[in-house]
Design a protein around this nucleic acid. Structure first.
Lengths: 234, 234
DNA sequence: ACCTGAACACCGTTCAAGT
DNA sequence: ACCTGAACACCGTTCAAGT
């Protein structure tokens, strides 16, 4: 008697790239970055690893596509018609919230070079700089400053979230841990950091993020420092 | 006859954590992030994987320690005695150059949460903000803005370098590739990005980085925007 | 106390073979 | 054209056993 090998049920409809990307997002949201493996993914999609490779060329591409799906939705949700400054803030806050909801895109953005997701954001920022009447020669540096700041915050948020998840901490546990560590630093070497330990527990990430954006925007509005003179000198 | 197993020669002196960290830095500098494996490391140190684990608890800790060694050297090399603004620039440029020389620390910084390396930089920045006479309540948001901007640029630089290395491109090949990709974007959807494709080839990363720093510094010097009012309102 | 190195439990990726 | 799933070449980490 032939022993029929018991294998898991396979899907009957055929796979699509979109389904793979959506399943990846679900996995990343639910289990964090380490949750996205081809084994997890093929189980969830009731298929084999090879089937996924038919639609997608590598894990890197998959992560990029998942990230791009989120970024595209975020950028499409930015309301049009507001002032340039308000729109720049909306873009920045939109990305902040997107990274908050999907921490893994913070690390996807910082790790994969200037590809589609980054370009979508750059484009949104750049168009507003134009309407703001910023001289062309400052466009690149200015857009880059905003973009890199957003990426920097995103990357840190992602890292903090991942650390907290890996150690089974919630946000408040995590802040307590860092705050405690900072309180124990040598006061002679780290006076400033020690003095920040308290604020750390009560601060509002989103508010601080916005304050940074406004710092840059206010710099943009009043380009009058030594360095811009230096740049003009070239 | 007993066949004596030919094994690689082992070291005779004993291992130290410092030697392990230095060997890791050499590996990371020479072969990039993927070059740091316990197998590579134990071969280089003429020892076994277990020996390394005796001195170091995980790969994560090792990467952190390697990153911290570079950051500590960088921060110690910042000259003292200059004006606060000049020192802030020196810190930023010092980190930029350190990341340029060791791209992997860009990704180590963005991936491991607020630990020693980040604290060293935060402290340096914060002390200068104090001498600048910035009101205490703005310290956190301001220092965070500078720090996150530096991390953002660092992360992007690291990612770009790794991409270039993985594809066997030098800097100019890499810029050509991105520039070509941007030139082919749909002009109706990506007018700004397309217009940047040219500048991309000739731009100076370091100069643009400095321009961003100065944008933030100039915002710091003239805190007068809607958002700071908003923060004060709280 | 410090080290060895085989073994374990994973990865991403490939590919002959199936439909 | 699309999928299967075993196999491959790696990982980080552990641990009984040695000195």
């Amino acid at each position: 008697m032939i022993k029929k090998k018991r294998s898991r049920p396979r899907r009957e409809d055929s796979l699509s790239r979109d389904q793979i990307v959506e399943a990846s997002i679900a996995l990343l949201d639910g289990q964090g970055e380490s949750g996205l493996t081809f084994r997890n993914l093929s189980e969830r999609l009731a298929t084999g690893a090879g089937a996924i490779y038919w639609h997608v060329s590598s894990k890197d591409e998959l992560l990029s596509a998942a990230c791009d799906a989120i970024v595209a939705r975020t950028m499409n949700a930015i309301p049009v018609g507001a002032t340039a400054e308000a729109t720049l803030r909306a873009i920045a806050l939109g990305m902040f919230d997107a990274i908050d909801a999907h921490p893994w895109i913070g690390s996807a953005l910082t790790h994969r070079p200037a590809q589609l997701p980054a370009v979508r954001i750059l484009e949104g920022i750049g168009q507003q700089l134009r309407t703001l009447g910023m001289p062309d020669k400052h466009h690149w540096a200015t857009a880059g400053a905003l973009l890199n700041y957003i990426f920097g915050v995103g990357g840190q948020n992602a890292a903090n979230r991942q650390f907290a998840r890996a150690n089974g901490l919630d946000r408040s546990d995590f802040l307590d841990t860092v705050s405690a560590a900072w309180s124990q630093l040598d006061p002679d070497v780290y006076p400033f950091t020690r003095s920040m330990a308290g604020q750390l527990r009560t601060h509002d990430d989103r508010m601080d993020f916005l304050a940074g954006i406004d710092l840059i925007l206010s710099g943009i509005c009043g380009l009058r420092t030594a360095a811009t003179a230096e740049i003009e000198k070239r």
